[in-house]
Nucleic acid binder design. Structure first.
Lengths: 95, 95
DNA sequence: TAAAGTAGTTTATATTATAAACCAAATATT
DNA sequence: AATATTTGGTTTATAATATAAACTACTTTA
């Protein structure tokens, strides 16, 4: 009947991050922060969780003397997102 | 960009309950329990939250000597669900 | 009448989400 | 040249949520 929803993705902020990374393929921390309106702390934590799950790759480097965190989705992350969307449909039915 | 997701509905079990109540219009506790595979305790708590939010009406009565809890969705609940689905779409985009 | 089943609720705990506080370095201000 | 402010984050503390385990109250069956 209802398919389980991946708890990693069933979180507003993490879902927004993945959603953005699908469209842009690569994004800076500050870009994600602006687009999601999340606090830096919350974003930092959720990026780590997505990384631990293997859903995104995180590259930390310096740019113009400032630290820069770049995120990109992995094939695992993309597959998880697609599965999540399919599972969600079992809850939405008619709509 | 991304619309906020109603936290009452952004919960796997509560979303499943509402989803069921939309299709059947009225359901017993035991029916919801079977369809969702939830534990009775979890279901009891989530039904209460949906009731507190005004998303469902709960009628407690006796049937064949046993207690019976019947749930039905309210217009408020239906509207909230529809809004939730619309908001969700901002996260799913391409799919 | 004791054991097991029905239909739940309450409570305790683990997990999550979030904000607040913090850190290190860069740049701007006086 | 010190001090203040800004950038780009991380860590930690707290509040909110989800969940399971334990419990309640009653009924049915052996």
């Amino acid at each position: 009947m209802f398919k389980d929803l991946d708890p990693i993705l069933h979180s507003q902020l993490r879902l927004a991050i993945i959603s953005l990374l699908i469209t842009v393929k690569e994004a800076e921390f500050t870009f994600l922060r602006e687009k999601t309106n999340a606090t830096a702390g919350n974003l930092s934590v959720q990026i780590q969780k997505l990384k631990e799950a293997g859903y995104i790759d995180v590259i930390k480097q310096f740019k113009d003397n400032y630290p820069q965190t770049i995120c990109k989705i992995t094939p695992t992350g993309l597959a998880a997102f697609e599965k999540y969307v399919e599972s969600l449909k079992t809850y939405l039915g008619q709509s």
